[in-house]
Design a binder for these strands. Structure first.
Lengths: 234, 234
DNA sequence: TATATTAAAGTCACAGTGACACTAAATAAC
DNA sequence: GTTATTTAGTGTCACTGTGACTTTAATATA
């Protein structure tokens, strides 16, 4: 029996946030080989000394770049093959994270990554070339996000603690890339008793003030029995 | 920078089938340490020489025990930690597979596993103690299977190529552990144009013969827009 | 021919959605 | 003040798909 070759094992968090009416993800510029100088996901090898399990490895990566903890984090899938890294067999476990208030976050460069920035996503994924198979990993995460947004309450984790129903509607429309009926979101979120009224309102310009809400259970995702179906065909 | 410790990386397929009106999974008895003599999932290490990617590692494991290929296989999740294997940091990628006609399959013992058998599942999972965290892995796979059965057409992959609507109903009821309306399945499967009528009928005893169907696209899973909700509350 | 048995179609109430009209609450302009 | 304007939130209706139940169809046997 031969000693098994070692497999490089990493986690790659796809960190989503929304600003300027667009979905963005966090990318870093590599300053080590391979793919030196390329943009990539802010992932890295699992550290057997540091990490107790793979979730904590993903949390650590997230914290290194954004200094955030406690945000929504979900495992998407694992890809691994002999060919995805020129150095040999490798595996990566893809996560997605949802970050509110990106404006208030200071991004931190770490060793192996000289720059960190938010990159906008269009309908098909990212617009710039990335290292390894990261473009595909992002597409997987994006597909999962879109799918979950249409049948769960997960999109609310991209918003501040207090938000209006319009905020919720905008987030859904940005992620799904289409119009969403505000009435549907009302019925879903309030009908499923997910929201708590905050005693203040939000008031901009000369319009009627909007009720502020917060999630009753900040760390829970509600599964609706139907998925939002989008516009009617004719 | 220290040389990273090596992480043992395996795949663990949870192989489901249905007979005797019960859901069963394939288990093997280990004849190597650790957990020598314990039952476990028919998984094993990824072989960098043999396997091109993790899906083919899972396919290989499936083929070694059942000699089957081409059955439905889906990645469930990846678990990994410093503590799940007494030998040190390890990762396993959990798959689930759906096997029709288990009666016609010859199970094969391989090195590391002296016995292979089908073990019935009850509502909470498996009834016997298993090696490592395999009991938890099975619960994850079972939860995923139940969930997918209630909003996709995946259950049909547990049936012969040709089946009746009653077969379909039985499979659903066995997996979900509750009554399912046959009318609902009719509407879903035929309404979504998933089935093709086979020119013969099945005819047992003195009852009306049942129409045989087969999936139009054997390798596709259809997503219904609603999940089956179960009996009405009062 | 009547009966038993299962297959399949029919029917109805109900829940949740998409679409859109309508009312409510605030400010700004007059 | 009154009115116009803008956004917030409600009302309503048709439509889809489900759960629950009923009715009809097809077969073998007594």
């Amino acid at each position: 029996m031969t000693r098994p070759q070692s497999i490089q094992t990493s986690v790659d968090p796809v960190i989503f946030t929304v600003f300027d009416d667009k979905l963005h993800i966090l990318v870093v510029r590599r300053n080590i080989e391979p793919y030196n100088g390329c943009w990539s996901l802010p992932g890295g090898l699992i550290d057997c000394k540091e990490d107790l399990d793979i979730a904590s490895a993903a949390t650590r990566k997230l914290k290194e770049k954004t200094n955030l903890s406690g945000c929504y984090l979900e495992q998407v899938a694992t890809v691994g093959s002999a060919s995805r890294d020129p150095r040999g067999w490798s595996i990566t476990i893809v996560y997605f994270a949802l970050i509110p208030r990106p404006g208030e976050i200071a991004l931190t460069a770490t060793h192996g990554a000289s720059e960190v920035r938010w990159e906008p996503l269009n309908n098909d994924g990212i617009g710039i070339p990335l290292a390894f198979d990261h473009e595909k990993l992002i597409k997987m995460a994006l597909e999962r996000l879109r799918s979950k947004v249409s049948y769960t309450s997960v999109a609310a984790h991209l918003l501040d603690e207090a938000f209006t129903l319009l905020d919720l509607q905008n987030i859904h429309e940005i992620i799904l890339g289409r119009k969403v009926e505000k009435k549907t979101l009302m019925r879903r979120y309030i009908g499923s008793d997910l929201l708590l009224k905050v005693p203040e309102n939000r008031h901009e310009g000369r319009m009627r003030p909007a009720q502020l809400y917060q999630l009753k259970e900040r760390n829970k995702v509600h599964y609706f029995v139907r998925s939002m179906e989008g516009p009617r065909e004719e």
